[in-house]
Design a protein around this nucleic acid. Structure first.
Lengths: 217, 217
DNA sequence: TATAAATTTATACAACTGTATTATTTTGGG
DNA sequence: CCCAAAATAATACAGTTGTATAAATTTATA
């Protein structure tokens, strides 16, 4: 793509845009938002810096597009993880596993998230986008939890469900973040095990039996 | 302090240093790390910009000092919260409450944390400092949990204690972060209630009875 | 009060930022 | 093959950054 012969140049519009976004995310993951300058991004994407103005009205627009791309990837990953055909408990377990394993949990993903989180706290426009993504993930988790309770013939008020989904989301967020910030502080599979145990305690059911590869306890 | 008569100027060394650090934290909380420039910081502290070079070898050193100050404040707050004379369960409940209420949970505290988190992910020196603070908080929580179990005559292996403390810490981190990022998404006391319920489920005991002001469920 | 040290302030500068402008190359239909 | 339009690239510029340096002020001691 980066060659100077320039043979493959047809219908590059979407490709180039996506490349710029991907390069932005790569730099934020590797070196942080501070390093995500127009020059660094275009260099990473093997294009010249004028290009960013051709595809985006401003750098802020590129950053916003990168955030949207990142966030929708997370939401999609969450959907995929729990779309299997198993029972409710198994689907929840899969969702938890996927949330606490690579590539969702991983230094890069967490580093990108950290960069955007710092940005959105001080940006009204981004905070709305964040709220949408957060609500989407929490409501997804909420319906998974509701399914598990229904599967076991148990009932819960809407308020209880809400609190369970908030707590569950907090567990995933917290473990995910710690795993990303201090990857070497946890051994393989430990975060998944803690996540399954904690959700099990929260919902008073067993989820650990669904774990694929049990680590040595 | 900022008057031009300059009467009170004795032994200002520590004061000025602390003022610069406080100004740094205020700006990071309000406008993010990007806004924390030497000029903004010194203006916020009502001094000229040369001063920062007198007290700190570089801006990075000021940032690092601000992080240390912030982190030690968090650790101290955690210690204070659970140093009462009640039983183990009550002390744990107090710790949870304190962790999920102002001033620990609050936009400013979370915003400062977010700024530093983004920085430390890409800074070897800061990540060591972070690990120390994180370990300190988690070990504190671990001993609180151990006390609760001991109080009830229950036993737990070291590995179980470790996982419980990781999970508990994740719950606090997750709730704390969500409360800071989306303060209006939760009503008063909701985060504390979720925290107490979740820890109760995790430890298979009741902690909600210790909550001071019960919100309407 | 006189004076040297400590503290505070002002100015200068090179490097880097986002963006605007201009030039070059590539593409597709006649 | 030609040529307007689309796509890509190169250069210029004003503003901001961290920091270095020099000047001014305050403090403590004799």
């Amino acid at each position: 793509m980066q060659d100077k012969n320039g043979k493959i140049r047809k219908d590059n519009t979407d490709t180039r845009r996506a490349e710029l976004i991907a390069a932005t995310l790569r730099i934020i993951a590797r070196d942080g938002v501070k390093a995500a300058t127009v020059r660094q991004i275009t260099q990473e994407a093997n294009v010249t810096q004028g290009l960013v103005r051709y595809y985006f009205q401003s750098k802020d627009e590129l950053i916003a597009a990168a955030y949207e791309s990142y966030m929708s990837g997370l939401v999609r990953a969450a959907d995929d993880a729990s779309k299997g055909e198993g029972g409710a408990s198994e689907r929840l377990a899969k969702f938890i596993e996927a949330s606490l394993q690579a590539p969702v949990t991983g230094r890069d993903t967490v580093a990108i998230w950290a960069g955007f989180f710092e940005l959105l706290l001080h940006d009204e426009a981004m905070i709305a986008s964040h709220k949408r993504g957060y609500d989407s993930l929490r409501l997804h988790l909420k319906s998974l939890i509701a399914d598990v309770l229904a599967e076991q013939g148990r009932s819960a008020t809407e308020a209880e469900l809400r609190r369970l989904s908030i707590a569950g989301n907090a567990i995933l967020d917290g473990l995910w973040m710690e795993g990303g910030a201090l990857p070497e502080a946890f051994h393989d599979g430990e975060l998944v095990l803690v996540g399954l145990e904690s959700f099990g305690a929260l919902l008073k059911t067993d989820l650990c039996s669904f774990q694929k590869s049990l680590p040595r306890s």
